[in-house]
Nucleic acid binder design. Sequence first.
DNA 1: GACTGAACTATACC
DNA 2: ACGGGTATAGTTCAGTC
Length: 819
Amino acid sequence: MKTSFIPIDYDYFDFNGRNYTKIIGRNSEGKRVCIIDSCPVYLWAILKNNLSQKEIGDVIKKISKIKLNIKGRQTKVEKVELHNKKFLEKPVKALKIFATNYKDLHDIADKLGIKEIEKRRGYDLGFITHYIIEKKINPLQKYEIEGEMLNNSSEFGGVDMGLDVDLCINLKKAKLLENKKTKFFPKILAYDIETDDLKIGKGEILMVSLVSEKFKKVITWKKSYSKPSYVEYVKDETELIEKFIEYVKKISPDFLVGYFSDGFDLPYLKARAEKHKIKLNLGLDNSQPRFSRGINLTGKIKGIVHIDILKFIKTAYAQYMKSETLSLNEVAKEFLGDTKKPFKIKHSSELEKKDWNNYYEYNLHDSVLTLNLFQKFWPDIKEFTKIVKEPVFDITRYGLSKIVESYLLHNLEKFNEIPEKRPTSEELSQRRRDGPVEGAFVFEPKPGLYENIAMFDFTSMHTSIIISMNISKSTLLEKPEKNTNSIETKRGKFYFTKKPGFLPSLLKEIFEQRRKAKSEFKKNPNPITQAGSNAFKVLSASVHGYIGFFGARYYSKEASASILAFVRKFNKDTIKNIEKKGYKVIYGDTDSIAFLINKNKEIEIKSLLQDLNDKLPGIMELELEGFFERGLWVTTRAGITGAKKKYALLSKDKKIKIRGFETVRRDWCNLARKLQDQIIKQILIDGNEKKSLEYLKDIVKKIKQRKIRKEELIIKTQLKKPISEYKATTPHVVAAKKMHEKKIPIGTGTLIKYYVAEANQKKALVRERVKLPDEPGKYDIKYYLERQILPAVENIFQVFKINTKEIIEGKKQMTLGDF
DNA sequence: GACTGAACTATACC
DNA sequence: ACGGGTATAGTTCAGTC
């Protein structure tokens, strides 16, 4: 039997004590294919130096005899081979110890505590990762496979019986079809549920929507006066769940996609199914979803990849996004230009018959948005999966460190490297005690309104330093050596060999692929080329964070400290060089430098850039970020020093770039944010403060006359941990408690909204005046003037020597006099 | 009881 | 626990006079 095959979902099972993979995928005809395969299972024992041939022979003999009878199965060492390998770049002699079952490698490693063995490695990768590395059956790549058809046979304990696939093949041969572009259009089904209570399983599921390319359905037992065509009525919640399963099975998607569905929709369905004593048998083998334990639930369905698209967006894109929250509404707005349907959710008992049609539509559209978001990010997910070589299920849930680490693990073989182990819990606590390393340098600006500014920045600074200076855990030298890359840090002077290490080499590969992908995208801008560029960008930008992350296999505080020391050095050196040429540097943060170009022409600045670049080592590169007509820097609140990380620029093409100001912070009320935004824009465009001052006076007047709507004064603050863990009772904690009393569901991550009301008695603390947005009350004019408006504008006008405090307070006294 | 600095908290920048 | 450090700023809390 021969067919094409694109692997999608990976699973494994034991048969006669051995491990077998069960991979579900599709062939070119769109048929669902399952392949059964196995691979050698082994771990590495790194031998001590200077062992004699005889000693090695004796060790091999000893190890070959290891037999274990644990967890109800027999496992043994089946073969031992001697190999010349590398571990952390150093040549080592290592024994490749083959055993029966991957899950027993740990126990075998425990038996290897003998003096000739220095280290034991390679048994903590997970069987699927081990299998993919070993057999190179990579996810989402296209193969031509050969094997025996299994047709409800009893082979492998009848694994294919009751498995809903078109073909089940015992794999014999697989050939990667390299040159053919994989045209793989997966079947996607998005879903979303509506319930009467947000606590998992507590309320009833009122309806569930299912949306795929040519399918739209809302299943509900809550009837309206008229039934839209996409709605299907069922008798009750039990039937709703059964109907849901029926449709999922009928459509049989490759991906079942939800938004926050790991934490809500899927566990909810499971809990309600349990309550009604029915099985949520969504798996291709009729199994129920399985949930991982831990803080973050993840729901796995066998054969169908369950994807919580929120998780992927959060990990890979949140840092580049404008949205203030990751709610479906905001994320859809940013990426799709579409929003949720307006509908105010109430408990079903409070809904009138006429409301239900809107509720159906709302529910349906949430699935539409979820589907569209998946489509939007599918090219990215595909790229990440192909590059990192971990299954889609994991790629969409891994954090950045796991993505980087997986990439490294899947590429060690070409360096003949034995993988490093995960840190033990002792190592983890030690690493946490290491404390932080000194970070980047930020130039203290002199407050003012400047004209004609140029901004340079280093291209992917940390990444290019790692590559150019060959920095990593394994290239760090124990002793000083000549002709090395060295750097002084607070933790001592560190030396790195110039012989390329595997981590900097792999990073260089990613970096070059990113460059290619980026130019590809520029030549031919489309979602596919953009996704390639994005994936390499995110991956390469995360490597420095990975090295400094205490949970990393290739963690190195020395390497991390060195990278940051180089970051400071290159930035400061460049500032000096720019100043030497007679320019005034006004600001810089980590990898950027802003300076005044005075009367010089742009061409002269570009030649300065060229000069600076000529002196930079390796692949390091300084770029022109842009030319700016005007720029505004202010003092800190204390009013003495220039504030770092707070500035605004007006580019030549009249675009405004605002950084750090209250305008861009979501924990300030809209009024203060909008006012500041207007003022900054006006000042940058006009070059003076006159109009802005009038605008400020007008707003102050309006607030005193209570002409500002309360919505403009709502302060939004996120709960970062459970309420009980707060040591200080802050305003937003008080508001959260009020919400809790009102039975509004809250938890870590909830954006708490409140306003500050007038005090009826002498209430000094802000928290005593906190009210929820729909609580009646008058807002506190004094608070908003002094704690929101004034701080937002004070240091801006200070640049023009205008004392805003007098303007605000002076008028206030007059108004108070009126009372 | 008013004042003040430290601690706690959130959020931004790169 | 699931990249990192640097920085600003508000509010509460605890200690001082």
